[in-house]
Design a protein around this nucleic acid. Structure first.
Lengths: 237, 237
DNA sequence: AGGAGTGTTCTACGACGTAGAGGAATCTGA
DNA sequence: TCAGATTCCTCTACGTCGTAGAACACTCCT
């Protein structure tokens, strides 16, 4: 079969050094994963199959198996790709206070998750060992240690921010795993009737950003109370 | 086909009034869902198929479709069943302070999620309109209003506790969506080498319960700072 | 020319969700 | 008593899925 146009043009690794070999390695692990991630983001995770991915790549589905042993490995690659978007500037300007460091991390995590809502279940269910995240953890422990937190506390804080962010992302972004949610209006009617105070409170509308910020700051405030009161030097008190 | 023993004995609706009609409705929506939830809990969500569920029920897979229009509806039923386990005693003893009310809610949510780890992605991705949860929301708004929180704040607080709990449950419970995690040890080695301070902090071990409680109390402490200082409006603090 | 990679395709298998038609048992009304 | 109607379940079949296994076409090395 003649190489599909989509391939020759947009995707694969570069023709090494001469123009007379345009076609050889049409695929690559990275390009497959990039294409798959686009499919997930645009069509939904349910529409990602090895066969459809092959079609998108202009290639027999089985060609993918040369680069990835199975679909699970493809998923791993997707999660990896999402985490790779988290780029904390480890020595950046924002690091002047421990608090702004953590806020920047949390917000960026939230932003990245927001770009790939269909990846959430997969992202949420595996442990985070990407260099970006580990590097951030290292820095956070150091920086928090400097202002009086124990290593234990520092880890807990980072973890709590992470889990809160992930949980909040679910609440905001997810279409119910396979089906659309019941209509807002009809549910609202039931609520108004049976839960009047709740209905009043809801009437203000749901503002995910505001709520997220409130939770984020509350978590930070709460942990700050654990610090030794005026502790200035190293691990004090 | 003769009715499978598993059916006649353990599950379905009662033979109405006489012993001579053993056979009528062998199945029921509730029994199907209960069985499916057991399968999910014991074998994992990946092992739940309509065919295997039919086999477990001793019935042709298509029989299920008399009670549930499709697999999505089965999932809906499963989520519903999980939420139904959340039974806040709305007028219970624990309600003496707003704080203990919220703590009880959060802990119970966590407990229920912990019983059905494989349900997490499904539970996390759909909005919560079960009576138990709505009823709790109503009460929380009232009780928090009485001590000075606005309705908006009350909702945010409840939501933040919920999302934190869900996020934390993911971190604790989930096997990566389809594959086992990389071995703890080999990862630990890498961490120790490249992220020494982080490694020190981790050395204490991961204690999910401790971490969860820390986050929970921090979130509550943080929100408490938002209250009007000595607000005595209602039944007092 | 002839092998040894390398990258892709072809074919096929078993499992999946579920549509559609067809039973068999029971209930209803005559 | 008996003929529909109703209720509950089974059989068969279709299209889709992940992927094993073999075969094919190129390029490179000798």
């Amino acid at each position: 079969m003649i190489r599909n146009a989509a391939n020759g043009l947009s995707g694969p690794s570069e023709p090494r050094d001469s123009a007379r070999r345009p076609v050889r390695p049409a695929l690559s692990r990275d390009f497959i994963i990039k294409t798959a991630l686009e499919m997930v983001d645009t069509r939904g995770i349910g529409q990602l199959s090895m066969r459809k991915l092959g079609a998108e790549l202009g290639v027999d589905p089985m060609a993918i198996y040369y680069y990835l042993p199975n679909k699970q490995a493809l998923f791993d690659g997707l999660v990896e790709a999402v985490y790779a978007e988290i780029q904390i500037d480890v020595d950046g300007e924002a690091s002047d206070s421990w608090r702004s460091t953590l806020v920047a991390f949390a917000r960026q995590l939230r932003t990245v998750l927001g770009r790939h809502p269909d990846m959430l279940p997969m992202v949420a269910t595996r442990p985070v060992f990407s260099p970006a995240v580990l590097g951030f953890g290292e820095r956070a422990v150091v920086q928090l240690g400097a202002v009086g937190f124990t290593g234990q506390q520092a880890l807990q804080l980072v973890n709590c921010l992470r889990t809160f962010t992930v949980g909040h992302a679910f609440a905001e972004l997810s279409e119910p795993v396979g089906a659309p949610a019941p209509s807002q209006d009809e549910v609202a009617a039931v609520i108004a009737e049976r839960y009047p105070k709740l209905a009043d409170a809801i009437a203000g509308g749901y503002q995910p950003d505001v709520e997220y910020e409130a939770g984020l700051q509350a978590m930070l405030d709460g942990f700050e109370l654990l610090r030794p009161p005026a502790g200035e030097a190293g691990p004090g008190s």
